[in-house]
Computed example of a mutant assay.
Amino acid sequence: MPRYFFDFHDGQALRRDTEGSECGDDEAVRQEARHSLPEVAKGEIPKDGDKQAFTVLVRDESNATVYTATLTYAGLWLGDVPIPEHEPELDD
């Protein structure tokens, strides 16, 4: 089974995967990237303010990048705007 390496970039540093994971096909690679991004990001958000992007770069055994995915966090302070308790009714 082919081995793929999932490197993570947090906007500041690249963490290279030295062990890799065996994946049977392209869909398995995509699923591994999709599941690993939130796991890596959850302890890091927000690292530096209210904007952060996490990218996974997937390499195959020949060291070619074959897939990439990005998870973005964006926070925004709204100030003193109250959140409505219910939606206003529309006039006919």
Rank of each mutant, 00 (worst) to 15 (best):
S36D: 13
L78G: 08
T55H: 07
F8L: 10
G75T: 06
V58K: 04
Y4P: 03
P84C: 00
D17K: 01
V40W: 15
Q52A: 11
Q52W: 12
D26A: 14
N63P: 02
Q31R: 14
F6K: 03
Q52E: 15
R59L: 08
E19G: 06
G43V: 01
A53H: 02
T65Q: 13
G75A: 13
E87N: 04
D26Y: 10
P46V: 07
G79P: 10
F8P: 00
A74F: 10
D25H: 06
S62F: 07
G75R: 09
V81G: 01
E32A: 06
K47M: 11
K42C: 06
T70V: 05
F6W: 04
G24A: 11
P46M: 09
L14W: 00
I45D: 08
G79R: 09
V81E: 04
D92C: 05
K42E: 12
L14G: 02
R30W: 04
Q31T: 14
R16P: 03
A33F: 01
P38Q: 09
D17M: 01
L76K: 14
D60V: 08
V81D: 02
P88R: 02
L57F: 15
T68V: 05
P2D: 08
A64C: 11
N63S: 15
D92S: 06
W77G: 12
V29T: 02
E89P: 00
K51C: 09
A33G: 11
K47G: 15
P46W: 12
T72Q: 07
T68H: 12
R15F: 09
S36C: 07
G79L: 07
W77N: 11
L37G: 02
D60K: 09
R16C: 14
A33C: 03
V66T: 15
A64G: 05
G20P: 04
D10H: 05
C23R: 14
Y67C: 03
E27Y: 13
G11A: 10
F5P: 05
L57H: 13
S62T: 12
E32M: 13
R16Y: 07
K51Q: 13
R59G: 02
V81I: 09
E44G: 03
S21R: 14
N63L: 06
Y73P: 05
D80V: 02
E61S: 10
S21W: 14
K47L: 14
K51R: 13
Y4Q: 00
T68L: 12
R16E: 11
A28N: 07
I83F: 07
V81Y: 03
D26G: 04
I45R: 15
E87H: 13
F5Q: 11
G11K: 10
D25W: 04
K42N: 05
V58H: 04
E44W: 09
V58P: 04
L90M: 06
P2V: 00
E27W: 08
S36V: 01
K47Q: 13
Y4V: 04
T55F: 06
Q52K: 07
